[in-house]
Simulated assay, not measured.
Amino acid sequence: MKTIMIVEDEAAIARVLAAYIRKAGFDCLICRNGSQAVESFHSAQPALVILDVLLPGMNGWEVLQHIRRKSACPVIMLTARGDVGDRIMGLNEGADDYITKPFEPDEVIARIHAVLRRPPQSLVSSDQVTYGSFRIDFKSRSVFLNGAALSITPRDLSLLLFLAEHPNQIFNREQLIEKVWGIDYEGSDRAVDLAIKRLRKLLLHWPPEEGEIRTLRGTGYQLYANTSD
């Protein structure tokens, strides 16, 4: 079950949102301030965050910046302000949508479904990335290890490129099938496990301190990449 994180300091609003979100078939986690949201985000691995702008202490913009440094998780900003400037700022900072209070809970659920149907934002801003001895050229759909081009089947390559576009972000099998192979895919979800196994074999000589494809038991897969200088 997908988890929606609500970051809202007004208890009444948080309770109403949580009730509608659970009724829509999602799990729900409520954080009452920005610091709690930042602390809980990586362990909770939410499918989407509803983030109030006006929070005590760390405000919503700061929380959004923290999320965007490491994750493309969808974020819907929530605020009492009707200023168009706030909306533009939120979208420029990487928010996926924006809802102004007061709102209809049914509209929020509709926005959640709409945002989750979109392809996730890429955290990669260039045509090529390099993680030590591993280089990916997204434009030519080519990958290189120690300077040598790797031969990969188209389906496995699509999976690897998707993970590389979202370094250090965790995806479960269902998400990978939907985002990489399409919702019309009719094969077993175990195909993801087999594809990951083949990719690991190809990347066997990629030093783990530079990066690797990791399994997070009970959660999913990620392409861990050491992005430190």
Score class of each variant (00 low, 15 high):
1 M>N: 14
6 I>Q: 04
9 D>F: 05
11 A>E: 13
17 L>G: 02
19 A>I: 09
23 K>H: 09
23 K>R: 12
26 F>Q: 08
27 D>Q: 14
34 G>H: 12
35 S>V: 11
36 Q>I: 07
37 A>H: 07
37 A>P: 06
39 E>T: 10
40 S>D: 14
41 F>N: 08
42 H>G: 06
43 S>A: 13
43 S>N: 12
45 Q>C: 07
46 P>F: 01
47 A>P: 06
47 A>Y: 04
48 L>F: 00
52 D>V: 12
54 L>N: 12
55 L>R: 03
58 M>Q: 15
58 M>L: 15
60 G>V: 02
60 G>R: 01
61 W>K: 04
62 E>Y: 03
63 V>C: 06
65 Q>S: 12
67 I>V: 10
69 R>Y: 06
71 S>Y: 09
77 M>F: 10
77 M>K: 13
78 L>M: 13
78 L>S: 10
79 T>F: 00
83 D>E: 15
87 R>F: 08
90 G>A: 10
91 L>R: 09
93 E>D: 06
94 G>W: 14
97 D>W: 07
98 Y>T: 14
101 K>I: 05
106 D>T: 08
106 D>N: 08
107 E>K: 05
109 I>E: 06
110 A>T: 12
115 V>S: 11
116 L>F: 12
118 R>W: 00
120 P>C: 08
120 P>V: 10
121 Q>P: 00
121 Q>H: 15
124 V>K: 10
132 G>Q: 13
133 S>E: 11
136 I>S: 11
139 K>A: 14
140 S>K: 15
141 R>W: 08
141 R>Q: 15
142 S>G: 06
142 S>L: 09
146 N>I: 05
147 G>C: 02
148 A>Q: 14
148 A>M: 11
151 S>K: 13
152 I>Q: 08
152 I>F: 04
152 I>Y: 07
155 R>M: 14
156 D>F: 07
157 L>Y: 00
158 S>F: 01
160 L>V: 04
161 L>A: 09
162 F>D: 00
163 L>P: 00
171 F>V: 02
171 F>N: 01
171 F>C: 01
173 R>F: 00
173 R>I: 01
174 E>G: 11
174 E>Q: 13
176 L>M: 08
176 L>D: 03
177 I>G: 01
178 E>D: 12
178 E>I: 09
179 K>Y: 04
181 W>D: 03
183 I>Q: 15
184 D>L: 08
186 E>G: 01
186 E>M: 05
188 S>V: 05
188 S>K: 13
191 A>D: 10
193 D>F: 01
194 L>F: 02
198 R>F: 02
199 L>Y: 04
200 R>Y: 02
202 L>I: 05
202 L>S: 12
203 L>T: 07
205 H>G: 00
205 H>C: 02
206 W>T: 03
208 P>C: 02
210 E>M: 03
212 E>H: 08
212 E>D: 14
213 I>F: 01
213 I>S: 03
216 L>Y: 09
220 G>E: 05
221 Y>W: 15
222 Q>T: 15
222 Q>R: 15
223 L>S: 09
223 L>Q: 08
226 N>Y: 07
227 T>K: 13
229 D>L: 14
229 D>Q: 13
